[in-house]
Design a protein around this nucleic acid. Structure first.
Length: 356
DNA sequence: GCCTTTGTGAAGATAAGCAT
DNA sequence: ATGCTTATCTTCACAAAGGC
């Protein structure tokens, strides 16, 4: 009956050492695979460890080494395919270097992000990858650096912070997508984002606290300006946070500028919501409304019509961020930089060509 | 005297138990 | 109520022991 599930003290190095009749340092050397031990003793210890079913105590190990072998990742929205793909890239890079990953979700809320960072620092993660919800609130991230924990920003950059960032080429991507729409003859264009709407509407691009969205909007607006289209900021619409809000955003846009109109969706969740909104309004893509979405999400290639997208190569972005963080943890001498992953426009069937 | 192998003891954060 | 000691478990720097 000794095999019952009765709670018993876990087997430690000292237990193995006692069973193998050696000191715990010797047992620890064998079990931890470090230092030098004669073959005969190595065998004794391994046999004792196997008999006792020894499992190392990771808690004690990280207490002793000062390393946890864990990388913390704070993402903006775990529901968003952009982040799940990124996390896959990050954890692949981490695993290759012998690290595990703990994921926390901020829901793009600054408070949630702060407590997630706090928690992970408390867990003694060896490094942190954060998608900052706001690029204008950096106190908690400076604290990470003061704590001596390597930090890599993901998707968004904060120049004042002097840390590595892995982002897309958001401005160029938006320029390419917008030019494509212009090239197809569109003159009524709008950019739709899930960022929280600002009180009093958008009057200055610098107000946008998310650098990725800000740069995309800058790209979008710059193409509208070079094409001499009037009042470009008016066609940047924030607040498409859920289906209901998106329906509302689309409804107002269509009141303002009846079809034909072309929409640029800031991410794949917004893209899908826009697609649903248009469907429920009985509007046809691309005959009534053309659209391009950021991120080549699965759904974008199976809808009718299939959706023209900005392929962000998010897996590569995640992998790059993971590798960069590992390099920082290993104290590789590298200059702080912003690594941009190039995007490409994947042309499908959601943009109409307008004859004029 | 040197090299290899093995042992000793401290560090690290926190809480329970004990003494003042 | 307060401070002190001890226990947790592993790793590592250093010390010791044994063989040549």
């Amino acid at each position: 009956m000794e095999d019952s599930a009765a709670p018993k003290r876990s087997v430690t190095v000292a237990d193995v050492a006692r069973a193998a009749k050696v000191s715990k340092a010797t047992a620890a050397r064998v079990l931890g695979g470090y230092g030098v031990v004669s073959d005969a003793i190595k065998e004794q210890v391994m046999a004792a460890a196997a008999a006792l079913e020894y499992r190392p105590n990771e808690l004690a190990r990280s207490m002793s080494t000062g390393r946890s072998g864990i990388i913390g990742v704070v993402v903006g929205d775990i529901e968003n395919a952009f982040f799940s793909l990124a996390v896959r890239g990050i954890s692949d890079a981490a695993r290759l270097a012998g690290f595990n990953v703990i994921i926390a979700n901020s829901g793009e809320q600054l408070d949630a992000e702060k407590s997630a960072v706090d928690l992970l620092i408390g867990k003694r993660v060896d490094g942190l990858i954060v998608t900052p919800a706001r690029c204008d609130s950096i106190e908690h991230l400076q604290h990470v650096r003061r704590a001596g924990v390597p930090l890599v920003l993901f998707d968004r950059s904060i120049p004042e912070l002097d840390v590595d960032a892995v982002t897309g080429d958001d401005r160029d991507a938006a320029i390419a997508a917008t030019r494509h729409l212009i090239g197809q003859g569109h003159r009524r264009l709008a950019y739709v984002s899930a960022m929280e709407a600002l009180d009093g509407g958008l009057t200055d691009i610098a107000q946008i606290s998310n650098s990725a969205v800000r740069e995309r909007v800058e790209g979008f607006v710059s193409v509208l300006r070079e094409t001499a289209l009037p009042n470009p900021l008016h066609y940047v619409r924030l607040g498409a946070t859920d289906q209901q809000q998106t329906d509302e955003v689309i409804r107002r846009l269509l009141q303002d500028a009846p079809p034909p109109i072309a929409l640029l969706a800031s991410d794949s969740l917004v893209g899908l919501r826009i697609f649903k909104s248009l469907q429920s309004l009985g509007l046809s893509v691309p005959n009534d409304v053309s659209m391009i979405s950021f991120l080549d999400a699965d759904w974008a290639s199976v809808t009718v019509p299939s959706i023209t997208v900005v392929d962000q190569r998010v897996y590569e972005m995640g992998k790059l961020a993971g590798e960069r963080l590992v390099a920082r943890i290993e104290r590789k001498p590298l200059a702080v930089e912003r690594l941009q992953v190039a995007t490409s426009l994947v042309i499908r069937s959601s943009v109409a060509t307008i004859d004029r």
